[in-house]
Structures are given as structure tokens and as C-alpha cells.
């Protein structure tokens, strides 16, 4: 087996173990939350008797370890159980059915933002490295720093005010449903995607710039200069190929943020994503939904970091082509 494939499989295995450990942490920390679904739904009328019945119906009177084993065994088979909130009598709403459309929306928004933000920050980072300490470099650095320094809801409201309210180019909110056509959906997420882009570009762009500049003192860069190669070629062909590893790590981190950190932006734009749903589920103590969301977030982080690891392996010829 090629050593790279072996490493990737190893990392994948480690990722699974991490995910498993995270599932225990999620389950046990949720078990520590005060109150419960029964108290929450019954409110003033939560007599001990009623709560007991309620919990019995939901299976919550069994020991936590039993419930965990049941949950994780079903989860690995793709069954995340039923939402409490939909369970009345014989009607049951499966968690997967509730999450799926929300997850799609979240990934749709994240992908839109990523497709704009990643190439843009790479381009800006490379240009800033090429014209380092020039006016371009300084302006791009301070603009991106400003956008990252502002809270995202603030950016969101400014964009709504200027682009939706004043100029009327976009809708001020991003309500979509399962029936929204693709292009309409794209148009509706433009503002939230732009907000997220402004939030993450600075980080990725600055890392690209720093990773490249970090290499400029390397003897092979001096050698390339002394071969009479143009400045842009020195950066693109001699520095960038060796700079991918740190850049990929930061990109992975930011992409994960696009999936798991969007709740504020979702709320501002009234966008039906998974973050909004998770917050609702936490406040109503709808544990199966919360657990499933948390597990998806953890898996996203692990997978994206695995991807970053793979990128750093395959862009390193020492690892890809051993002696």
C-alpha cells in the first residue's frame, strides 16, 4: 500500500475514534443540563406524576448508560431517533427528517460562501505577498482586519441596510423553503454568504500571505531570483507550492466555521439553517435533535481537518514520493 494511503486510512480511523469520544461527551454533558423536556413542555402544570409519565413514555426513566448505548447503536446505522417535540401518541417525527432540509440549507449557504471566499482570499493573499509592504498590501490588510474585527451581526445589519433597504438589490431576509428553485435560493443567500465571506476572508488571506512570505528567506527562493525569473513566477511556482500545508489548515478551520458557526447570521437573515434549529432544540430540551446536530458539527470539523492533513501530505513530495 502506498504510504500516503496508509496515513490517510490511519487518520480516518483516528477520526472515527475522536467522533466516538465526542459522542460520549455530547451525551453526558446534555444529561447534566438542568430541567428536561417534560418540565419544559408542561410548564406550570409539571406535577411529579405527570413528569414521571412523560419521561416513561420517552424512555427517559432508564439509566443514562442504557440510553447512550441505544442511541449510539442506532446512530451508527443512520437512525438518530425521533424528536420529542413531534411525538404525541402514535405520530412520530424522525430526527433525520427534521434535520435533512435544514442541513441542506446550511451546506448550501456554506458552499456559496466558500466558493467566493476561498479563491478570493488566496488571490488577495498571493497579491499581498507579491506586493508586500506596498499600499495595496496595507489597504487589503486593514480592510480585511476591519471586517473580521466587527461582530458578524453588525456586518449583516449594515449589508441589509445598504444593499437591501437603500439600494433594494437583495431581499432583507433569506426565507427559503424546500420548493425554492435553485437560482432563487442562490439569490436569497447572497447577503448571508457575503456576510460570512467578509468574516472569514481576513484569516485565510493573512495566512496565505504569511505562509508565502515565510518561505521567501529560503535559499531556493534566492536561487530562483538569481535565475532571473520574474517576481510573480518566484511566488507562484517556487513559494506557493511549498506553502499549502498551513494555508489548507486555516481554510479547513474557516470552512468548518461556515457550517457550525452560522447561527447569528441565520437569525439575522431569518434563514432556516441548522444552527437556528439547534438553538431551538436546546431551549426546548429536545435531546435527540441536539445530539444529532452536535454529532454532525463534530464530524464536519473532523472531516475538514482530515482534508487539510491530506492536502499537506500530497503537496509534500517528500511524503508523496519517498526515496
Amino acid at each position: 500500500m502506498h504510504p500516503v494511503l496508509k496515513t490517510v486510512l490511519q487518520r480516518l480511523g483516528l477520526g472515527m475514534i475522536t467522533l466516538f469520544a465526542v459522542s460520549i461527551i455530547i451525551f453526558s454533558s446534555l444529561a447534566l443540563l438542568p430541567g428536561g423536556y417534560a418540565q419544559n413542555i408542561l410548564g406550570q402544570g409539571a406535577t411529579p406524576e405527570l413528569v414521571k409519565n412523560f419521561n416513561h413514555e420517552l424512555g427517559l426513566d432508564r439509566p443514562a448508560s442504557v440510553r447512550y448505548v441505544e442511541w449510539i447503536t442506532n446512530a451508527v446505522q443512520g437512525d438518530f431517533g425521533n424528536s420529542y417535540s413531534g411525538t404525541t401518541g402514535t405520530i412520530k417525527r424522525s430526527v433525520s427528517a427534521i434535520i435533512a432540509p435544514r442541513l441542506y440549507n446550511t451546506f448550501f449557504l456554506a458552499a456559496t460562501a466558500a466558493i467566493v471566499a476561498v479563491p478570493l482570499s488566496l488571490f488577495l493573499g498571493i497579491m499581498a505577498a507579491l506586493y508586500r509592504n506596498s499600499w495595496f498590501d496595507r489597504i487589503i490588510n486593514s480592510v480585511t482586519l476591519t471586517t473580521i474585527a466587527m461582530p458578524e451581526f453588525f456586518i449583516a445589519y449594515i449589508l441589509v441596510y445598504v444593499l437591501a433597504v437603500k439600494l433594494r438589490w437583495f431581499y432583507p431576509n433569506s426565507t427559503v423553503s424546500a420548493n425554492t428553485p435553485f437560482l432563487e435560493h442562490l439569490y436569497r443567500v447572497a447577503l448571508p454568504a457575503l456576510t460570512m465571506t467578509l468574516v472569514i476572508v481576513a484569516h485565510m488571506m493573512r495566512m496565505t500571505r504569511a505562509a508565502i512570505i515565510n518561505l521567501l528567506a529560503a535559499p531556493y527562493i534566492e536561487m530562483a531570483q538569481l535565475k532571473g525569473i520574474s517576481k510573480s513566477r518566484v511566488i507562484l511556482r517556487h513559494a506557493l507550492p511549498n506553502a499549502w500545508a498551513p494555508i489548507a489548515t486555516v481554510i479547513a478551520f474557516n470552512l468548518a466555521y461556515l457550517v457550525v458557526g452560522v447561527v447569528v447570521v441565520e437569525v439575522v437573515y431569518v434563514y432556516p439553517g441548522i444552527g437556528q434549529m439547534m438553538v431551538d432544540a436546546v431551549s426546548s430540551r429536545d435531546m435527540p435533535v441536539v445530539q444529532a446536530c452536535a454529532l454532525i458539527f463534530a464530524a464536519t470539523y473532523i472531516l475538514l481537518n482530515l482534508l487539510a492533513d491530506i492536502v499537506s501530505i500530497i503537496t509534500n513530495p517528500r511524503l508523496l514520493h519517498p526515496k
Binding site: P219, A224, Q225, L226, G228, N242, R318
Partner: peptide, 24 residues
């Protein structure tokens, strides 16, 4: 100057291991 470098005046550095780009 860049037009002369490499074509009419060339440079051989101390450590070839460090002066070759590992990526190519």
C-alpha cells in the same frame, strides 16, 4: 539585471539540498 541573471551570470549555492525547490 534579471535578464542577465541565469542567462549570462549564473549562481551555484552552498547547499544544493536547500537551494533546489523541494516541490519540483
Amino acid at each position: 539585471r534579471r535578464g542577465l541573471w541565469g542567462s549570462r551570470i549564473a549562481y551555484v549555492a552552498q547547499s544544493a539540498a536547500a537551494s533546489f525547490n523541494p516541490a519540483h
